[in-house]
Design a protein around this nucleic acid. Structure first.
Lengths: 215, 215
DNA sequence: TAGATTGTTAATCGATTAACAATC
DNA sequence: TAGATTGTTAATCGATTAACAATC
């Protein structure tokens, strides 16, 4: 069965459910009701039940949800144990910062390569991996078929690299650039991360608060 | 006038409008209609007009929008030229990566301090600033009253630091941790950035595509 | 069994899209 | 003026919330 389409907003809430359930399990708690979990997470009980029922009936009437079972179910839904592999392209500030991020595996991705076009960086170790020159991407992908590329590049480079990587079989992108991958490659899966946009919306909020205070 | 409340989703689109308008202006184009801009950005003309009219009537019937005027208006709305100041707390991988991010000012924030509790990092230069020990945060804030703190910390540290910073007069947070600032401090302004969540939703998409292909 | 709590259907709310009169 | 395009009101769509019968 194709399964009804899951809305993006539901999927975006799954990691947070997973996190809370992991915490609760670590505390040794066995079960929880949608009402209690809602209070804990600042959601409504309805929303939690609706969200979970997109994927199946994981609860038990009159009882609630088994925390460890639900945590496992969500891990499975998220595909955290499928060994999805990722490469980082661009070993600048963001790229290196991310490469050193210790929790890749816990987030469902296994980092298997870091590339940079600057030959001076080749061989430098970041996050336990030696940076490879970009001209080795094709052979690397042919040999290892990573699933995901994390693009820590400017827009122009991202555009070029995305095309290349798609031709090499990569289907998923975590995109830190402003290049609109989906426009050129609608079949790709894309998560955009625009930290600069968060800075701007923060500047907006601060500026608005200031002007509100001076009416 | 208090002005009608602007929805979060409208605000989140403003940086993208700003970016496209900046590009168009750099190309020397003078005017654009909502229809053309919509085609360029992959939105509907209706949405663009609705979004802009939250803030004022910036267009002209029968003509469209002046690109340079609209760009300036959005810069003003976002408060990009108000010199909002920010500190980074936590000079780990993410903190250092961000501190070196060259475009702070273009995103409406001016980085004025970087702090870390590890004394070994004190004095190390990142992004042109020397890391300060965390015990100097109070005196620094008293002297410089930064507007925003960028928390590049784990949840426990973030909780502690957020309380302290709010008592020191900071009202805005860009939060890279999973600590829920608004729960304890509903008056704060918060932008959460959860890169790990993006990794998980990417793992979800990859895993779903794989299972869809094997029915 | 009785109480609790789910799964699911219906109602509400808000955001997006469409339509069109106003007007440059 | 006539054509184009906005600003704005109305219609649609989708997501969230509420309600409740099913059931453990």
């Amino acid at each position: 069965m194709p399964g009804k389409e899951i809305s993006r907003q539901v999927v975006r809430r799954l990691p947070r459910y997973y996190r809370f359930l992991t915490d609760l399990e670590a505390q040794g708690i066995e079960k929880i009701s949608s009402g209690k979990l809602a209070a804990l997470m600042g959601l409504t009980a309805s929303q939690i039940r609706q969200d979970l029922n997109c994927f199946g009936g994981f609860g038990q009437q009159g009882y609630g949800y088994s925390i460890s079972k639900l945590r496992q179910e969500i891990a499975k839904i998220l595909g955290l144990e499928e060994g999805t592999t990722a490469i980082i392209v661009g070993a600048g500030n963001i790229g290196r910062g991310l490469a050193s991020y210790a929790q890749f595996a816990q987030k469902g991705l296994r980092l298997v390569g870091v590339f940079d076009k600057n030959p001076a960086l080749a061989g430098v170790k970041v996050g336990g991996l030696a940076v490879l020159p970009s001209d080795q991407m094709a052979s690397f992908c042919a040999a290892n078929h990573p699933d995901v590329a994390i693009l820590c590049l400017d827009s122009d480079a991202a555009k070029e690299v995305a095309s290349l990587l798609i031709s090499l079989g990569i289907t998923g992108f975590i995109n830190f650039s402003h290049y609109d991958i989906l426009r050129d490659h609608p079949e790709a899966m894309v998560e955009n991360v625009h930290i600069g946009d968060s800075m701007m919306t923060m500047a907006y909020q601060i500026s608005r608060r200031k002007s509100d205070q001076t009416p």
